[in-house]
Simulated assay, not measured.
Amino acid sequence: MTLLEIDALTVRRGTQTVLENATLNVAPGECVGLIGPNGAGKSTLLRAALGLIPATGHSSLAALPPAARARAAAWLPQSREIAWGVSVAHLVALAQNGDEAAPQVAAAMARMDVARFAARPATALSGGEQARVLIARALAQDTPLLLADEPTAGLDPAHQIACMRVFESLAVEGRAVVTSLHDLGLAARHCSRLVVLSRGRIVADGTPRAVLTPELLAEVFGIRAFALETADGLVVQPLGGIV
């Protein structure tokens, strides 16, 4: 069983190819990290998979009618703007047609540590708090698959780790997450699988230990990194650029 099937997905902007022949299957129980330098095609892959931008090739999500797609996958875009001063509870409940009493709403707010903000206007929160509220809204959609574009951006370290642990727990529950990340340490410790993009192409796909080799880090990211197996998992810390 797969929750997402992508085959030869290609996105062009004018004469430029920004995503080329991406092929990827995601199964229940996976927490997949999309990593790569800026402009590698991570956001493009997520958006094309959802049918939000024109593409050639095949995506099982993009092929679905909008209502079925919303039941199959939740989407957390990179943008974190909240335009209206509605309460946090109401904003999260939009994932359940505005039903603030839905159990999915309470569960999502608890998971993202925003339940104490339930009655506060979402626009009155800090940027990091707003980011957690928006993640909670995506979780409240209660779909088998979550696609998230840089969800940890703007979060403090404790909430970055907490967010990734939530994603891990979703995978343990039999759902799946595909998330783009820039923090290689978070990707190494919390993702069961890493997909590396470089210049619009998938160049590696496997476990963090198999993917995050010195050779790949040098070739794709242009960095040296310290890597160590610990009781808490694989720790990866960039040290500096390749001279």
Rank of each mutant, 00 (worst) to 15 (best):
G200S: 04
A227R: 15
L9M: 05
L3W: 00
P157F: 12
A210C: 01
G200E: 02
D205P: 07
I161E: 14
E5T: 09
V88L: 04
R189W: 05
A27R: 14
R201W: 12
A210F: 06
Q78K: 11
A95K: 02
D142H: 09
A95F: 03
R224A: 04
A95H: 01
A89L: 14
L181E: 03
T2M: 09
V11T: 04
A118Y: 04
D113R: 14
P157I: 02
Q78T: 06
Q160W: 09
Q130G: 08
A55F: 15
R175I: 14
S198A: 15
G127N: 11
V114Y: 05
M109N: 09
P121Q: 03
G85I: 00
L9F: 03
T17Y: 01
S87P: 02
R132I: 07
I202G: 07
R193Y: 01
D7F: 01
F226D: 09
C31K: 05
P77E: 06
Q237C: 15
T143Y: 05
C31Q: 15
P208S: 14
E100N: 00
M109K: 04
G29A: 06
A225C: 05
L170N: 08
G41K: 10
G85H: 12
A72I: 04
L134V: 11
A122E: 06
G206P: 06
D183S: 02
S180R: 08
G206E: 11
S59G: 13
A62Q: 10
A83D: 09
V18F: 07
G240V: 13
C163T: 15
A89R: 15
R80Y: 02
T213V: 03
A138M: 10
V236E: 06
H90N: 05
R12N: 02
L4R: 00
D183Q: 10
L139C: 08
V11S: 02
H182W: 12
A158H: 15
R224K: 02
T213Y: 03
F221L: 06
G128W: 01
N97I: 03
R69A: 12
A122D: 00
E100A: 09
A67C: 08
L155P: 04
P103M: 01
A140I: 14
M112I: 08
A55G: 13
A27V: 14
P28N: 04
L212E: 02
A119W: 00
G154M: 11
T44M: 13
S126D: 10
L61M: 12
G98V: 03
R175D: 06
L76M: 03
A107K: 01
A187P: 05
N38C: 11
D205W: 01
L45F: 15
D232M: 04
A63P: 08
R165A: 10
D232K: 12
A83H: 05
H159S: 02
H159Y: 02
T213I: 00
